[in-house]
Structures are given as C-alpha cells and as structure tokens.
Amino acid sequence: MGQWKQQTLSRKNWMAFTGLFLCLYLVIHLAGNLQLFLPAERAHRQFNLYSHILSGNLIIKAISYILFACIIGHVVYAIIITVANNRARKIRYHYDRRGAASKWYSRNMGLLGTIIFIFLVIHLRDFWYVYKFGRLPMDADGHKDLYLLVVSVYGELWYVILYVICMVALCYHLLHGFFSAARTLGLYHPRYTHAVRVFGWVFSIVICSGFAAIPLYVYCLK
C-alpha cells in the first residue's frame, strides 16, 4: 500500500472513491430533503422527526465521520494533484487556445470545487452547526425545530440566489466528475462508458435541480 501514495493513478483513485461516496451522500441528502415539499404542516413535523432520528443513530454517526473524511480527502488530494500538475508545466504558453479541444468545466474542476467548498462551509455553519451546537426551539413533538430554521434561512433572497448558483457549480462539477471517476476506476468498455456518461448527466441535473428547487420553493411559499 505504501507505493499507492506515489503514483498519479492511485491519487486519482482516491479522488474517484471519495467523489463517488459524496455523490451517494447527495442522493440520501436529497431524498431526506424532499420531505420539505410535503404540505407545510406535515413537512414541519416529518422533517424534524427525520433530523432527530438521523442525529441519534450510531450508524449514521459513523457514516457522517466517513463523509467528513471524504470531504477532507477529496480536498486534500485535489490540492496535492493540482500542485503536482502545476509542476508538470512550469513555463506557461505564451498564447493558449487549447480550450477549443475540451469542455470548460472539465478544465476547471478545481475552481468549481472551490465554490462548492465555500458553499459547504456556509451551509454547514447555517444548518449543521446550529442544529448540533446552537439553540433551536422545540416543535410540538419535542424535536429540535430544524424546519423553522430552514424556512427562515431560505426566506432571504440573497441566500437563495447564492444557493442556486452553488448548485449550478455543483452540477457542472458532477457533469465531469461522475463519468471521470468511472473512467479513473477503469471502466473502459465503450458501450458502458457511454451509458455511465448519460447516467452521469441525468444524475447531475436531477440532483442539482432537486437541491436548487428546495430554497426556491421555500422562498416562494413565503
């Protein structure tokens, strides 16, 4: 295993593993959040119950540690890889039109990733931190009232806009990231790579529009 660290391909493998785990988490996260689309009263109680169950479960706790490890791993490897890549060409091109040969978002995964990371920090501070360490009122069932927090945060227009922009960034990040991860892990069969690519597109658009719809919906409710 010691050798893994030194090779470009194994670093990319870690990027792929962590990235795909984060993708999986996005699905779970979105599935939970879809409860917000329920009629207001039901959404209020069910969402708070759901959050309560999640926060108390040991397995979920373990997964959340893996999740944080993945985020950190993904970021750390991204930095290591970027530094190495920059070292692979010390002198820049005087005139550069290489962009014509590839998609802009495939070349700017680092930038998109940075936007997502900043978003993540804000997002965690506003919800996770407050839920965990802040003082939240209790709802009728005696659970912390996260729903109220969500509704109040998404009531702010600027926050909704920021959220939507970040989801667009995430969408582009996934558009490239999903299929790229499959390639990195060694999926080379032409038919299946194409299927994965199409699935990746659908996945990125569904997930990101799902996430983006929530604040818009909540904002409109107000």
């Binding site: 670093r11 060409r89 040969a101 299929f179």
Partner: peptide, 8 residues
C-alpha cells in the same frame, strides 16, 4: 501530470 479526463 495527472489525467483529469478532459479528453483534449
């Protein structure tokens, strides 16, 4: 460097 599958 590393391959990031840009396909260029």
């Amino acid at each position: 460097g590393h391959c990031s599958n840009t396909e260029a």
